[in-house]
């Protein structure tokens, strides 16, 4: 979409010019580096195990996945709606979809940079002399991107829906946690069809049977893309609705 790239570039440069982003990046990298090294030591130097943990098998991974996107996206729309910049963008010759998509891509790009740490870890093994199994590593990276896409889209939706960044981040975080743990919660009870429905949005299950173990599955791929698209669609509708009132 025309203008998407422009918005994307601006948002990325804004992200990487703010100290918050770098702090988040450094903290996330330190955390995932720590879990990586810990698993490496625990498993007696197992290349596969440590890479798997760095790529989705650990709690730290999901914590970063939950916390980072809301913090990245919280200001993107809510703050601009407040200080009039959204009005500027919406009167520029770019479509609403391009605005939302550009911002989404920027947050996603940041996550992509963040998760490239898993590739770096694999590279470390390469340098040390134990060639890792690259295709699953790359597959895991793609999986991390897809999960990030889902949470970034959710964060952006929240940013569009709520007026202050703090509220938006809070709601996005709660929503992400809810989506992530709802299936586990529903699994405790016998809900029948409800359980099946919830299982259909089970991010962890989808992730675990695909990218975590080095499989790319079209259904899982589209699961993440479709839900991310759905949240983005809602975000665009909300931005459009901002014109109406």
């Amino acid at each position: 979409m025309k203008g998407t790239l422009t918005i994307f570039r601006r948002e990325v440069s804004a992200l990487f010019q703010s100290p918050l982003a770098w702090v988040l990046l450094a903290v996330s990298l330190a955390l995932s580096g720590w879990i990586f090294v810990a698993v490496l030591e625990e498993s007696g130097g197992s290349v596969k195990a440590s890479l798997a943990f760095a790529g989705g098998g650990s709690k730290v991974y999901w914590m970063i996945m939950l916390f980072l996107p809301p913090l990245l996206t919280m200001r993107m729309i809510s703050e601009e709606a407040r200080n009039g910049l959204l009005e500027f963008l919406l009167t520029a010759p770019v479509s609403d979809g391009a605005v939302v998509l550009g911002k989404f891509l920027a947050a996603w790009f940041f996550m992509a940079v963040m998760w490239s740490s898993s590739l770096v870890y694999a590279l470390v093994f390469e340098v040390v002399g134990s060639a890792p199994d690259w295709p699953p590593v790359v597959g895991g990276y793609i999986g991390a991107l897809l999960v990030s896409a889902l949470f970034c889209a959710l964060g952006l939706l929240s940013s569009a829906a709520f007026k202050t960044p703090a509220l938006s981040a809070f709601v996005a975080l709660s929503g992400s946690i809810g989506i992530l743990f709802l299936p586990a919660l529903a699994g405790l009870f016998e809900f029948g069809w409800l359980g099946d429905t919830v299982a259909a949005v089970d991010i962890l299950a989808h992730f675990h049977r695909s990218f975590l173990i080095g499989v790319v599955d079209s259904q899982v791929l589209l699961f993440f893309l479709a839900w991310a698209g759905f949240f983005l669609f809602l975000a665009v509708r909300i931005v459009e609705a901002k014109r109406w009132n």
Partner: peptide
């Protein structure tokens, strides 16, 4: 539906 196993 397609599925690709990336592991060595």
């Amino acid at each position: 539906h397609w599925r690709m196993d990336l592991t060595r």
